[in-house]
């Protein structure tokens, strides 16, 4: 029996539930001194739903007649040809940018890291107008920083630029 994408996701969920039953609940709940009743109920609920999901996804595949399946395949292969890999790469790149930004945020401060992150993201989203890129990536973090510093009286992660601004404008 061939299992489609939905079936594979359902199997993944069932596998997670089994790991939860036999490893996570004993080590992450019971060993910590917490009651396993509610986690067991929730896990059983997810397991039953995942089995229903798996059954439904395989049932649907069975029900699709040969003709319809052919149509489905034809459409998907055509789509594959037309679809560029670029959009998915853009999502991966955007996620990578966020990971890098969050990682360096506490070391270099909010302003510098956000300026670089914004400039890179704006270019990634397709803008090539360098005036716009530079203006937005400098002004927006500055406005947010000042909003936090002056209006909300709280601090964002500080670094070189924040210290410089602090000594020049706030006498710190």
């Amino acid at each position: 029996m061939k299992i489609g994408r939905e079936g594979k996701i359902a199997l993944g969920l069932i596998a997670f539930c089994l790991i939860n039953y036999f490893y996570l609940i004993p080590t992450q709940v019971v060993q910590q001194g917490s009651s396993p009743v509610y986690p067991l109920i929730v896990n059983t609920f997810i397991l039953v739903s995942s089995i229903g999901y798996f059954y439904q996804s395989t049932l649907r595949r069975k029900r699709v007649s040969e003709g319809e399946e052919f149509e489905e395949k034809k459409v998907s292969s055509t789509e594959k040809g037309e679809k560029s890999i670029k959009p998915v790469l853009r999502v991966i790149a955007q996620t990578a940018f966020i990971i890098i930004w969050v990682t360096v945020l506490e070391y270099v401060g909010f302003l510098l890291s956000s300026m670089v992150f914004l400039a890179a993201s704006i270019i990634l989203y397709g803008s090539r107008n360098y005036f716009k890129i530079i203006t937005a990536s400098i002004l927006f973090p500055l406005v947010i920083y000042l909003l936090f510093k002056v209006v909300l009286k709280t601090a964002l992660p500080e670094g070189i630029l924040e210290n410089l601004l602090g000594s020049v404008f706030f006498g710190q």
Partner: peptide
């Protein structure tokens, strides 16, 4: 949109940090 979504990302992070 090339400006909008990166700015929303920063907003999301700042909002959670706050």
């Amino acid at each position: 949109y090339s400006l909008l979504f990166p700015i929303v990302t920063v907003f999301c992070a700042v909002g959670v940090y706050a």
